[in-house]
Design a protein around this nucleic acid. Structure first.
Lengths: 384, 384
DNA sequence: ATCATTTAATTAAGAAAACTACGGAAATCA
DNA sequence: TGATTTCCGTAGTTTTCTTAATTAAATGAT
């Protein structure tokens, strides 16, 4: 990209907003210091953002610990009092809505819920009707934008669902148009795992570089490098659920045969569990209890090892050393994550030279969705 | 990164040099257009670069095809007449030297050669002596810098070899100091595959995003995204040779068991070949002829498929659709690459939605080494 | 041959956004 | 109360880009 003076402003504005997202609350002086810019510059940018109602000033009451010397800074944060974004979580079964502020969005805000699909064919139309009904119940009517998270493969640049084995109607539907008709605001379609990864980053600002792997109906991944979602030439990336596991012959929803997803998705685990223990009930609670009682049986070890090979391979290729695991695997006995972690370390090259970590974490979508909305709608990058 | 006016100049200078590297030859006006900057700006930057002897003007004689209307532009290129860099290719067996110009470096320039290691322990000292002797024979004595390519795992930010199973002495030796004593110029240590990938990019400017996989003593990879080497938090990336292949129990030089490298490195292929055909001579030429005559036998198919799983997994994770294969695999019957290509397409998700390519190419190190030198020594990024 | 046209390169003037330097405001501490 | 420290804003300077106008060097038509 080429720089000229007219672009510098917007760019530094983005940087300042990003910094404030991470810090949560900060003064003009603190922002200037942490960004390496002069105080007048930071002050001027903050003034603009306050005028745009993107930031707000907040009363101090920040007497925690040592009382600082000198004039106290006027603390700033992303605006928590205004409407902000409408979050739509389009899940495989249900769709949830949340009114998200620009700052401090958390996953307790999900309120309204309706089914995502119909048994018969007209899911898109019914979904639009349900959305319209739910929208009427919201307290806010006007939003800066709508952030819609969808499962499957999403082309975020095109706001399109490319492939969704469990929610096929979203592939042909024009989601931005549907949502736009109802909400009358710009719409961003984002991949669920990418939103969760970004959400994790902003909830744990120390985690700047990691691979997030979510286990659920499918197995999806997302990559954060330098605190930003990894952008690749293709709309697909981090898709390690569909790495092939040699020796696995299960047919996957994606059309291929042998994806690790067929081994470690919820359904995949249940299949293996049931095959190894045909007399037990084939449901998740039974599986959970069984693993807690009996530890890691060979069928589970093999599945976990297959996933670990894919994860470790991704770490080697991406140059990462930290894995965040979310979803169903975190609901099982802690020995499961421990086994996976050991197995990942076994396959990750960096483990020979330094530390490789593989830890569980809760899913946090809201914060990530807001971050994407702020990044792409509130302080957008200039084209070119 | 934060921008201020003082940085804009350097940044746009970098962009202009990059553009000229890709274009080969271009005029001020062409550069301005392709970079989206104004003519006066491009002209001013070019003037600086000419004064620094980084660029040179070149006589036209470019009457190919239609005679263009209007005043012809004065064509520019990276300086081909001056010394530029000293390239040192530290191979597993031999070390080669080349005097590299800033523009149009090709691999015919490798001239002086000496052994890389000694049977007894003092390899570093002997290597320094050999280097000193070879350096005396060069026509140029003064270089902008020395680019040293090394096999194994290289931390390019630290100019250090982290791990080199086939050339262990480089791990503990202070290569920049050794080379600096002899050549008296700044030294950059780069990973061989990264140099080759960048070289491929500049020899085929259309290839902006790809994964390069080199087969030889080991199996190494490098990633180019947007025409630039992919930078990751760790000094390791693109290391797909050490992805584990389930069911493979060979011990790898890296310390792990089951790396795909043990299947598809030169030695790995020979092992499998010999095991399947114990009566035949265990050498590369025999293997080549045998494959040409008998096609892809099961042992080879399995090895290729294991490599393909790792490659396809890397494509899925990195969001890429193009693979460049270099090294020993390109020396075999074309059916080998064809098999690998099919197998990669089988495992690559993008193949369901678009095209996935896997093609062979010659190794080109010189161009990549120069590109790295230009990028890091001639028009360096400002620290921050 | 000459002149209009087209493209390239340079010069000059203007605008954007950063920086430094300084001064007033608001707190702590002696 | 006054010294010190820190924060924030104002004023003026600097850097680098842009646009607009000018000069330069080619082609092609009359």
């Amino acid at each position: 990209m080429i720089f000229h003076p007219a672009r510098m402003g917007q760019h530094n504005k983005r940087a300042l907003v990003r910094q404030l997202q991470k810090a949560g609350v900060a003064s003009r002086a603190t922002l200037a210091r942490s960004l390496g810019m002069s105080q007048p510059t930071a002050g001027k940018i903050v003034d603009e953002l306050l005028a745009e109602k993107i930031l707000e000033e907040v009363e101090v009451l920040e007497n925690n610990g040592a009382s600082r010397l000198g004039r106290p800074g006027r603390q700033l944060q992303l605006n928590r009092s205004r409407a902000g974004f409408l979050g739509i979580r389009l899940g495989v079964v249900e769709t949830d809505l949340a009114e998200l502020p620009l700052g401090a969005a958390d996953d307790s805000l999900w309120k309204l819920t309706f089914p995502s699909a119909q048994a018969n064919g007209n899911s898109a139309e019914v979904w639009e009707k349900s959305l319209r009904a739910a929208f009427k119940k919201l307290s806010a009517k006007k939003f800066l934008g709508v952030i819609l998270s969808a499962p499957g493969i999403v082309d975020e640049a095109q706001n399109k669902v490319v492939f969704s084995p469990n929610l096929h109607w979203t592939e042909s539907a024009d989601l931005p148009a549907i949502v736009g008709r109802v909400c009358n605001a710009p719409v961003l379609v984002v991949q669920e795992e990418r939103a969760m990864a970004l959400g994790h980053h902003f909830n744990h600002p120390g985690d700047e570089d990691f691979l997030l792997v979510d286990f659920g109906t499918g197995v999806g991944g997302a990559v954060i490098v330098g605190g930003k979602p990894f952008v690749s030439p293709l709309p697909i990336n981090g898709e390690l659920g569909h790495t092939l596991a040699l020796g696995n012959h299960r047919r996957c929803g994606c059309g291929a045969v042998g994806c690790v997803e067929t081994l470690v998705s919820r359904r995949g685990l249940l299949e293996s569990f049931s095959a190894a223990n045909p007399k037990l009930k084939k449901d998740w609670a039974t599986l959970q209890n069984f693993i807690s009682a009996n530890g890691i049986e060979p069928w589970l070890a093999q599945s976990l090892d297959a996933a670990a090979v894919a994860i470790a391979g991704a770490l080697n290729v991406l140059g990462l050393r930290r894995v965040i695991i979310t979803g169903s695997l975190t609901e099982l006995s802690s020995s499961v994550l421990a086994h996976l972690s050991r197995s990942v370390q076994n396959g990750a090259m960096w483990a020979r030279f330094g530390k490789v970590e593989c830890v569980g974490a809760p899913r946090c979508r809201a914060a990530g969705m807001v971050a994407i909305g702020v990044d792409r709608l509130v302080v957008p990058d200039l084209p070119d």
